[in-house]
Design a protein around this nucleic acid. Structure first.
Length: 846
RNA sequence: GCGAGAGUGGCGGAAUUGGCAGACGCACCAGACUUAGGAUCUGGCACCGCAAGGUAUAGGGGUUCAAGUCCCCUCUCUCGCACCA
């Protein structure tokens, strides 16, 4: 097939002499190779600090080096490259770096499978993928490239870790984890599928393990507050997700004394207004007081219940509408305001890791408590009535959670429950029963991973001294190259004696090196800062350079990182600020979340067989077409529906532009700029179209990122230009040249190789980027005549061509006199005539 | 269940501030050039109708001279959270 195709093309060359000239045929491969070399030779995208220029830091989320790039990458990086090139053409000093999120489990799995080393696999992949990105013609400053598995990167992270440790921001605690007994490793929640290990299908166990954590909760309030500063720059839904995740709620901590007086149960509630209606107490099964509260008579039942709750894994426990269940402990506490006895239950819906793990149960005003009380026959007491109504506990079928008037609440009766919230809180504080508190849903960030391919946590465990920091002079703790990857026996690091065995820096006795490595989210939490001074050897960050470049002006990536990565990165930036490394509060001023690339209605995946391979695409059409289509088919934030035929269309468009340029080239090559005084009407119209297009494309790209409509506008201009009769007539060549040059410059951010080549053909030396972004002539975009639409009763009936400065009365009269309009006015009376200047006339008749 | 967003031709999508619905592209149809066309060019293309005209932005109601756009209700889909006390 290929041979026939080529043969045909050659015949074509023979029959149409014009095509003898080699340079007239658009051949992406040659053009792209040529300009990629040019950019490399000229260091075209090198970013250097220049206080004279306004900086613009553009960043796309760096990829995991999984092997090869996919269409999602092509889209992500094409979007970023348009902005980078556009801003550069506008004269900004653009920083546009690229690197690799290079630690992670797939490398370790590959090592097990191929009996090789994760480093080899990772660096091989990086080399291959770097080549792929270069073939896309992305304008990165490759001098700043970094991989998070480079010693030169992770050693600085170890230093940061130790500083966090000193400040109490990194600490060790026992926390529950998903544990695969076969792999002998901790699994992340997303690696547990239906309660089984994603790799070996073993049943995942819940285990308590000593884990390293970062105290992100210390920054909960600031992380929440600053989401309001980001409003406008970030999509509202991402901010909402972060706010929900942080989950601040205001309420009270209230203490309920036990009946026996020996101790107290502390609860957190946001509904202290319902305190008088609290008739029993619900505790989490894991609550530390559960055992001591259990009476002998209840022991067997309680233990069976606790066992059952523990068996339900943590994911299932939340998911389904789990039937509310509980068990009576046999003990009672006292409601501190009513002095009534409250039986203490353990309940499966009470979570140990939210609030205090204990809930005061108000069955009349909380739906869960209502269901629980119904099931176990517990007392109901109404303390809030809806306005003008009286609730009867005996006939209630569900809890009343709305607002109303207080009853059965002592001195608080008769006021609204919102008012009572404040008053009861004050009362509790005054009486010493409770205090106002703020509770967060956000929990500390567990960073321990029992894996090899990660950044080693730089501490030593000594039997005598406990946890001891690795002294700064001994950093970095380097991953040993001689670990064995068998897939068995847990963390490979723990099986390298030369790594594990060490001496305690404090007492000099034999000790064991920590073998946990850090979560890969740690590396991606500060890479954007390191890009500012990627080779700096005086510390993690060169403060001066960070101050020049940060914050990132535009960050681009997938919505899947809306919470974790973006929250961790915000947290880490604030920590580095407080450690004195930088002065940045928020790392990303603007965030663009791009949609997925889908095909045939589904996300591209091997199993669906709908994967488009970027290599094949570039091979067949070139990088410019691949970029153009992925930008044209949908606006960035929406999902992109891949269409092979659509790609053809983009390729055809480039060919059309190419032919157009070469068609007019001989005529316009040496054309002088047009004399605006003597232009023909047609030429003037063309020039107006050119400047209107420049205006629209500029506005569509800048801020709005609507590349699809920007490209559509250029297509329209190309269509206009193509239909322009006297393209090569001497009196028009000045305007035609301006038009062609504008098309090339406007397309430059989208299809950079293509436009570089045409720019050179137009007789320029150097990159089209140096020509800068075209500005539009405000005078040229003003219409000489405008179309005013005439409606009768809101329906389009006719159109009118008028001068832009026409008087309202003139237009109205002309509209009423219009032949087509007359027909609709016959036998009716005109009630009103509405004129929207320059747009329409609406004649209201009856 | 709660929260957010979306629903426009055969398809991807336009319509930026309440003012011509369907830009641009794909697919399709017709024609031109051609030994040939999966190249290129010209024209057509929401639906009904011969036409005049009518009907159309998930469905129903409302506000307005005017609604894809604003308000209310319903349906469907996507995403997030999912017993958060």
């Amino acid at each position: 097939m290929e041979i026939f195709l080529d043969l045909n093309r050659d015949l074509n060359l023979f029959f149409i002499p014009r095509r003898f000239f080699m340079e007239e045929k658009y051949s992406p491969k040659g053009v792209e190779d040529k300009w990629q070399s040019f950019w490399a030779e000229h260091d075209s995208f090198r970013a250097t600090e220049d206080p004279e220029k306004t900086k613009y830091y553009l960043l796309e989320m760096f990829p995991y080096p999984s092997g090869k790039i996919h269409m999602g990458h092509v889209r992500n990086y094409s979007i970023g490259d348009v902005i980078a090139r556009f801003k550069r053409m506008q004269g900004f000093n653009v920083l546009h770096p690229m690197g690799w999120d290079a630690f992670g489990m797939p490398a370790e799995n590959a090592a097990i499978q191929n009996k090789s080393h994760p480093a080899h696999w990772t660096y091989d992949n990086i080399a291959y993928m770097r080549g792929q990105l270069k073939r896309l013609g992305l304008s990165y400053d490759w001098e700043r490239e970094l991989a998070t598995c480079d010693i030169d990167y992770y050693k600085w992270e170890q230093q940061i870790f130790l500083e966090m440790y000193k400040k109490g921001l990194a600490y060790k605690k026992v926390s529950p984890v998903n544990w695969c007994p076969k792999c002998e490793t901790v699994l992340a929640n997303e690696q547990v599928e239906d309660g089984a290990c994603w790799r070996c299908d073993s049943i995942v166990q819940q285990k308590e393990l000593e884990q390293w954590s970062f105290r992100i909760t210390a920054y909960a309030q600031e992380l929440l507050d600053d989401t309001y500063k980001l409003a406008g720059g970030w999509p509202e839904r991402v901010l909402t997700m972060q706010r929900n995740w942080i989950g601040r709620s205001v309420g009270c901590e209230i203490e309920f004394p036990l009946e026996n007086g020996r101790s107290k149960v502390k609860v957190f509630t946001t509904r202290q207004d319902t305190l008088f209606g609290a008739t029993f107490m619900s505790l989490a099964a894991e609550h530390p007081m559960a055992a001591e509260l259990t009476t002998e008579a209840q022991r067997a039942e309680v233990e069976a219940f606790v066992e059952k709750v523990k068996k339900t894994d943590r994911i299932k426990r939340g998911s389904d509408d789990l039937e509310k269940e509980g068990v009576f402990t046999g003990s009672y506490c006292i409601n501190p305001v009513t002095k009534e006895r409250m039986p203490i239950y353990l309940a499966n819906f009470v979570l140990m890791d939210y609030g205090t793990g204990a809930v005061m149960a108000v069955p009349t005003h909380d739906q869960r408590d209502f269901e629980f009380a119904s099931k176990y026959g517990l007392p109901l007491k109404v303390v809030i009535n809806p306005e003008g109504e009286t609730l009867d506990p005996a006939t209630m079928t569900e809890a009343f959670t709305g607002e109303g008037i207080m009853v059965n609440s002592g001195s608080f009766d008769g006021i609204s429950n919102t008012e009572a919230k404040e008053k009861i809180a004050d009362y509790l504080e005054a009486e010493g029963i409770g205090k106002k508190t703020v509770n967060f849903r956000l929990r500390d960030w567990g960073i321990s991973r029992q894996r090899y391919w990660g950044n080693p946590i730089p501490v030593i465990n000594c039997d005598l001294c406990g946890v001891v920091q690795v002294p700064e002079k001994d950093l970095p703790v380097v991953l040993p190259m001689d670990a064995a990857f068998t897939g068995e026996g847990g963390n490979p690091l723990a099986q390298v004696p030369s790594f594990v065995n060490c001496t305690c820096p404090q007492c000099g006795e034999a000790a064991r090196r920590e073998t946990d490595t850090m979560d890969t989210f740690v590396q991606s939490s500060w890479y954007f800062l390191r890009y500012c001074s990627p080779k700096f050897q005086g510390g993690p960050l060169n403060r001066e350079k960070v101050e020049y470049w940060m914050p990132v002006d535009q960050y681009i990536g997938g919505i899947e990182h809306a919470v974790l990565h973006l929250l961790y990165a915000r947290f880490f930036t604030k920590v580095l600020r407080d450690l004195g490394y930088c002065n940045v509060d928020e790392p990303f001023s603007n965030l663009l979340t791009q949609g997925m690339v889908i095909k045939d209605g589904a996300k591209m995946s091997k199993s669906k067989g709908n994967v488009v391979d970027p290599n094949a695409l570039i091979e067949r059409y070139g990088a410019d077409t691949a970029r153009l289509f992925s930008l044209f088919a949908a606006p960035p934030e929406k999902d992109l529906d891949w269409s092979d035929q659509g790609v053809d269309g983009s390729y055809r468009f480039l060919n059309r532009v190419w032919r157009l340029v070469f068609d007019v080239l001989p005529a316009v090559k040496n054309a002088a700029p047009a004399d605006l005084e003597t232009l023909s009407a047609e030429a003037k119209n063309l020039r107006r179209a050119v400047h209107k297009t420049i205006k629209k494309v500029t506005e569509d790209i800048d801020g709005r990122f609507h590349f699809n409509t920007a490209i559509a506008a250029v297509m329209e201009l190309v269509n206009t230009l193509q239909g322009f009769e006297g393209k090569t007539a001497p009196e028009n060549v000045g305007v035609v040249r301006e038009a062609v040059e504008s098309v090339v410059r406007l397309l430059a951010p989208f299809v950079p190789h293509f436009t570089e080549e045409l720019w050179a053909e137009l007789g320029y030396t150097g990159s089209v980027e140096q020509a800068g972004w075209p500005g539009y002539d405000a005078e040229a975009v003003v219409d000489e005549e405008i179309t005013v639409v005439i409606q009768v009763n809101g329906k389009l009936r006719s159109k009118l061509l008028v001068a832009p400065d026409v008087q309202e009365e003139t237009v109205k009269q002309a509209a009423l006199a219009d032949d087509k309009i007359q027909v609709f006015l016959e036998g009716k009376s005109v009630k009103k005539v509405i004129y929207v200047p320059g747009k329409l006339v609406n004649i209201v008749v009856a």
